[in-house]
Design a protein around this nucleic acid. Structure first.
Lengths: 256, 256
DNA sequence: TAAAAACAAAATATCGTACCAATCAAGCTG
DNA sequence: CAGCTTGATTGGTACGATATTTTGTTTTTA
């Protein structure tokens, strides 16, 4: 527990926000280190001289930001966390989802991002990472041999390949972007895997791309990336305009 | 008010999250349109068959995500908002700050984005836009002739040039990204304009870049962009590590 | 006797309700 | 038309009850 912390009584009128801001400031200034816990709800209540509801609202806001993790029970409480890149991506994904952006623009954007990431990954990824990536692509290839491939699983593996590649770029900002895009718009890739012919070609393309990356052949890898986007554009054109951005129906629900 | 909305009773144990998720889904799904308001807290309480505290926590989470805006008083309530790009920017800034990400990565990211944008802008921007851009660069050049240039104004014009260029790419995603980056991380550019020598070179470089764009010379424009980032990197190296990403202290505060 | 299992207790977050305060818009009144 | 009143809504506080997890203790078992 982090003692010797002192806060001002919460301001009336918008107490919850005030509490949240003071706590956030304390965390960001590293007056409370990651891993440490904030005082218990009741203690905070006393510290801020306010009701517990206010404290709880503030906690919820910080939790939502990914700054704290709340554990119940004895020795429970609010523990300061390192913000994960996945959490940071959520808010961009949310923004992207709300704008209904023309799929063409999205594809264009993704292609440009993919190309940069690929170049960086070839240059910076170490051999082990590269071989691991190639192995993942092989696993994907094995999966489509089945008669009735599990679509969800396929799309998830595709997503993971993309994120892994972004990680190999070594630049966390690209990982952030890639995750956001994958969070918001995986429906396009879904389209690629629906059709057996495209599915086959897409996976073959993944194999080729990862192989060229392992072989330290950036230009050939780029060429392969280009092929991927040719496939994607053709597929989207075939399907017509009915592949719009994902609706929120797929937001994970807490209860069944 | 959006009536005829139906929600499931909140699940025990993590009711707040459940409520937040259901509401978020309804918003993203556009079952509730931006501008419309959610039912009042008490109505939601009845709908979800839960206590008011739970509803308020959920509201706070949604508010924190930027999905709703809460107004007090008569005709008050929770109004669905368009998520602002600033939210995504904030959350990225928080992540980079907490993880202590090297500013070099940001520069690298910006350079790659700038290059793509420039190519697209040359290809898609019409002559009028390009000349307008060049004129803005000229205005910037005029400004640094003064003995004591207004730094704020300089940085703002630089920002506007960047955003205008992003707009000319014709792809809204690049514009959003550019805005997000400019919002949270313009301190680097500030560094470029502090030193008289760098200031002069930076502005000269802007002139060159915009000129090449107007002349439909993408490769020369790229070359010029490259020069910009050489300047920026040199400047940052000179200044040492003290130019970190913006503190979260500049996050807009709701109450004074 | 020592290890393992079962049980009780304490600390903590979570949930529900009731009540009052502050705020704001619209309508009423003089 | 200025000022007051009223109704609707969110904001804040208090208290009690419940669920969950850890911890310590006791009992059982090998």
């Amino acid at each position: 527990m982090a003692d010797t912390l002192h806060f001002l009584p919460a301001k009336m009128g918008r107490a919850g926000e005030d509490v949240a801001l003071q706590l956030e400031a304390a965390i960001i200034d590293e007056r409370i280190q990651p891993g440490q816990s904030l005082p218990s709800e009741r203690d905070l209540q006393a510290e801020f001289k306010t009701g517990r509801g206010v404290i709880r609202e503030a906690m919820r806001a910080l939790q939502q930001k990914g700054l704290i993790e709340i554990r119940k029970g004895a020795k429970g409480g609010a523990f300061v966390k390192q913000v994960e890149v996945a959490k940071a991506s959520e808010s961009l994904a949310l923004f992207l989802k709300q704008q209904d952006v023309d799929p063409d623009y999205l594809v264009e954007f993704r292609e440009s991002m993919d190309r940069t990431i690929t170049i960086l990954a070839v240059a910076r990824g170490d051999g082990k990472e590269k071989r691991k990536l190639e192995k993942e692509a092989l696993k994907l290839a094995a999966l489509i041999e089945e008669d009735v491939p599990d679509m969800e699983r396929l799309v998830e593996m595709d997503r993971n390949l993309n994120i892994r590649l972004a990680q190999m770029s070594g630049n966390p900002i690209f990982e952030w972007l890639m995750r956001a895009v994958q969070l918001g718009f995986s429906s396009h890739d879904h389209a690629l895997y629906e059709d057996p012919e495209y599915r086959r070609e897409t996976v073959a393309n993944w194999l080729e791309t990862t192989r060229q990356i392992t072989a330290d052949e950036p230009m050939k890898a780029l060429s392969s990336i280009g092929r991927h986007y040719i496939l994607l554009r053709n597929r989207l054109a075939e399907k017509g305009g009915d592949v719009s951005v994902e609706k929120a129906g797929d937001v994970p629900r807490a209860n069944g």
